[in-house]
């Protein structure tokens, strides 16, 4: 056992960058795949819809922790050794894609059906309708739930600690094991999460106010 030093605290807070990095990369990867899932879900082509629904149900119907293990150890089974960082970003991207895809589908469905008809009547293809008419309107409707999911994701990245990825929570565990000052350590960890999430919710409020996309 040793004393908790300021450099410990500094190191702990600095680990937040890995929480942020994991979140940001997962959001990017998840948005890319999530956009595809959303499109598959809304185009009038039943097999595509079925694939998207299966994917969404698989991801939403299993615990994120289990997905993390499957990705991390799954590569090992096939003889590939992957780093915790790689496994965590991949697992959380796949996880985010299902949720974001479903959130955005909700946004698309909230756009009145008449907008589809009006754009179809001008001769637009389904993808052109989505790109120029539907998604711009769905976008604003989707901002609050999308950022809500980001906040949820920030907190869930703490699960990556179990495969040895050192982010905020794991850093807290390490410092606490050495100093046994759980209250100080974990309150600091919690405060760091809170700050990140608070910034995100503020961003949400701002974006919604300034983006006058769907008039």
């Amino acid at each position: 056992m040793r004393e908790l030093t300021t450099s410990d605290m500094f190191w702990l807070l600095f680990a937040a960058r890995w929480t942020i990095a994991l979140t940001v990369v997962s959001i990017l990867g998840g948005s890319l795949l999530g956009a595809i899932i959303m499109v598959l879900r809304v185009i009038p082509f039943p097999p595509a819809k079925a694939v998207a629904i299966l994917y969404i149900n698989l991801i939403q119907g299993t615990p994120a922790l289990g997905q993390l293990f499957i990705v991390f150890f799954g590569f090992g089974v096939f003889g590939y050794d992957v780093s915790p960082w790689f496994a965590a970003t991949l697992a959380f991207s796949l996880y985010s894609a299902a949720f974001l895809g479903e959130i955005w589908r909700g946004g698309v469905h909230a756009v009145p059906h008449a907008q589809w008809e009006a754009s179809a009547s001008l001769g637009l293809s389904t993808l052109q309708q989505l790109r120029y008419v539907i998604i711009p309107q769905a976008f604003r409707l989707s901002i609050p739930p999308t950022i809500g999911f980001w906040v949820h994701l920030v907190k869930n990245t703490s699960l990556a600690s179990v495969i040895g990825f050192i982010e905020l929570t794991r850093a807290g565990q390490i410092i606490n094991a050495a100093t046994f000052r759980p209250m100080t350590v974990y309150l600091t960890v919690a405060a760091a999460y809170f700050v990140i999430c608070f910034v995100l919710t503020q961003l949400s409020a701002r974006l919604e106010g300034s983006l006058r996309v769907a008039r």
Binding site: A114, E117, A118, S119, L124, Q128, V133, Q137, A214
Partner: peptide, 23 residues
């Protein structure tokens, strides 16, 4: 249509040019 169904996120000009430029 009865209910106009203009694209609310686009101004009048872009409502009109969308079909011309995209289609």
């Amino acid at each position: 249509f009865q209910s106009f169904n203009l694209f609310p996120h686009l101004n009048a000009e872009r409502n009109i040019t969308l079909g011309l430029t995209v289609v």
